[in-house]
Structure formats: structure tokens, C-alpha cells
Design a protein around this nucleic acid. Structure first.
Lengths: 170, 170
DNA sequence: ATCGTTTAATTGAAGCTTCAATTATTCTCC
DNA sequence: GGAGAATAATTGAAGCTTCAATTAAACGAT
């Protein structure tokens, strides 16, 4: 598919890339499809049932778990796995819909605190069951307990490689 | 995070959702982050080094492996894990850049065959090593051989649940 | 105290994706 | 053989994300 030796350049112009082995190719083919299609499926459930993108849901959900239901934009971006620009645009829309409020932090006005409103909390509470059901039925229902532990370990290994310092930034 | 019991509605208004267990939540937190950040990292490598989106790469790559370097739009959409509308827009751009040609199939003109040009083939060949290196270093370098087999099995289980009939459509 | 640097966040424009509607072709079956 | 259903692909508009540039505030060294 995306990574195979049939594309090898044979003119000797560069150091030979470390192509994937057949086992790795098989694994990558399966994993890459999940990487695309699972987010698309979750997106579509949330859009249909709650009129929310997955990223919007992640933002509301992160706030709902935070102390005082408030976080500054950069922390929130890290928790929701998005860039600060993306977060800024999305929070603007969430604010327009009445689910989030923003205000500069009093001790350091460079920071902006985003706070979940009561309506915002109600929105997440209403959306959560459908989303969890989707995650459960698409992921956990098809995995054994051993595989669930494997997913956790593999996920952590890859995540650590992506964000080596442990912070969630981009 | 996205799926936890702290959002339980306690008014008894609906059937209790099947919340995630703590083990499942841990696994989901790690996996969900990978689901967002790994595609973003691959996207960014391809964009920077080859001026291609990951989806464009997947399209060119699928064509490069096909017999005669040609596939009809719907097959191509399935292999590249995208909707037919998305593919249509993207192939239009790839055609404009001279990497793909399109023509109606002679035996059934509802089908459109997309064919990789020589320039298109050269483009994938040039882009492949960098992409493979990214996949290798972000994924396979941090996994043991056992974990690679686990990724394959887990990926297949989830993928089968997403596309139960085995076809790649959406 | 102040100038330059760093950090947090926002903005607008360009580009990509999605959704619903549309076109074009072939199939079906009366 | 012809009307209507089904299939493959395309289109345009709306909306979201990204990128680069910008604003605003605080820090730090002199």
C-alpha cells in the first residue's frame, strides 16, 4: 500500500530507506485503515446525534473534568489534542453557542481561561452516552481484556514517541 | 476524559449507558490520542517534504500498486479510505498537477478509470522513502515484534466492525 | 525604567472535506 | 423497447482546519 518496496528507487542515488517488512506492512495496512475510519465513524455519530464535531466534544469533555470546569487555552489544546489556532476558532464557536465563556486570567493576562457554562455541561451530559456507546461498540466490544491492555501499552509507546517530553503541545 | 462516569445523568430518564471501566478508560485515553496525533504527524511530514496530503499520497500509492496503475474511482476510494466525493475533488487536483489521468470505462461508462501517469509514478517514488521512514520511526521502532502482531490483530478486529461486509465503502 | 525577547492567544485567508443535490449511464422487468 | 430504479461519479456551497502573520502581555538583562 503506502509503504512498500515496489517503489524502491534502484538508481543508487540515495541511502536505501528502511522499508517495512511483510509483517510490518500487514500490520500497517490494518492499523492505517483504523486510523482513518475509526475517527470518521466517531465523528459521524457525534455529528448526527449531538450536532458536535469530535474535537468540540473533546473540548467540552475536558472542561467538564477540570477543576471548576475551567482551563486556560493552551492546557485545553493539549488535552483535546489540537493546535492552539484550531482551539481558538472552535472555542469562539462554542462561546457563540453559549456553552463556554472566556476571560483573561487575572494574575497573568496572557492566559485566557475557558469555562464551561451550565448549558455547556448539560450539552456534554446529553452527548456522552451516545458517544461512549459508539466507542464501546466499535472498539471494546471486539477486543479481549488482554487486547485492551495491549492497546493501552501500544498507545502509550507511540504517544510517547510523538510527544517525547510528556507535555501535550504541538 | 471523553467517556467517563462523571457525566452520568442521575435522573433516571434513560437506560443506563454502558460506561467504560477504568481499564478501558486508560486504554481509550492512550489510543484516542494516537488516533488524532499520529495522522497529524504523518500529514505534516508529507506536507513538508513532498507537498502532498496523506490522502493524496494514499491515492497515488494505491494506483502505483494496481495492475496497469489504474483503478476506477469507487475502488480507489475504498483503498484510500475516503468517500467518493472526497476522492473526486482530490483526483481533480491530482489531474491538474499532471499525476493522474481520468477516462470513462469503455464497457460501462458509469465507471471512471483513474490512471497514474509517469510523472505521478515519479512523484510517489520520490515521496515514499520519507513517508516510510516516518511510519517506521513513529510506529514500528517503538514496538516489539509481539506488539506488531497485536497491532495487526487489533486493527483487523476493529476494521471488520467498521466495515462488516468486507467491502471498503462508506 | 526600558528595549528586546518570549509566551499565549487570536485572526484572516487559503485550502480541504462534507453534505445534499445533480448528472449520466446502465439495469430491470413489464 | 421504454419507464423507472439503481449505480457511479461529479458538483457547489458551507463549514472546518491550517498556516503565517499579528496582537498583547510579561519577563529579563542591562
Amino acid at each position: 500500500m503506502v509503504t512498500s518496496t515496489h517503489l524502491a528507487d534502484t538508481d543508487g542515488s540515495a541511502a536505501e530507506p528502511r522499508w517495512l517488512t511483510p509483517d510490518e506492512q500487514e500490520a500497517w495496512r490494518a492499523f492505517a485503515a483504523v486510523l482513518i475510519r475509526l475517527p470518521a465513524a466517531l465523528e459521524s455519530q457525534l455529528q448526527r446525534d449531538a450536532d458536535l464535531s469530535h474535537f468540540e466534544y473533546a473540548v467540552l469533555s475536558a472542561l467538564s473534568e477540570a477543576p471548576e470546569q475551567a482551563l486556560c487555552m493552551s492546557e485545553l489544546a493539549g488535552l483535546a489534542n489540537g493546535s492552539s489556532s484550531r482551539l481558538s476558532h472552535v472555542v469562539k464557536r462554542l462561546e457563540r453557542r453559549g456553552w463556554v465563556r472566556r476571560e483573561p486570567r487575572s494574575d497573568d493576562a496572557r492566559y485566557t481561561n475557558a469555562t464551561l457554562t451550565a448549558e455547556g455541561m448539560a450539552k456534554v451530559v446529553a452527548a456522552a452516552p451516545g458517544h461512549v456507546e459508539a466507542v464501546r461498540s466499535l472498539v471494546f466490544d471486539v477486543l479481549t481484556p488482554e487486547q485492551i491492555a495491549q492497546v493501552r501499552d501500544i498507545g502509550r509507546n507511540i504517544h510517547d514517541r510523538l510527544a517525547p517530553d510528556g507535555r501535550g503541545d504541538r
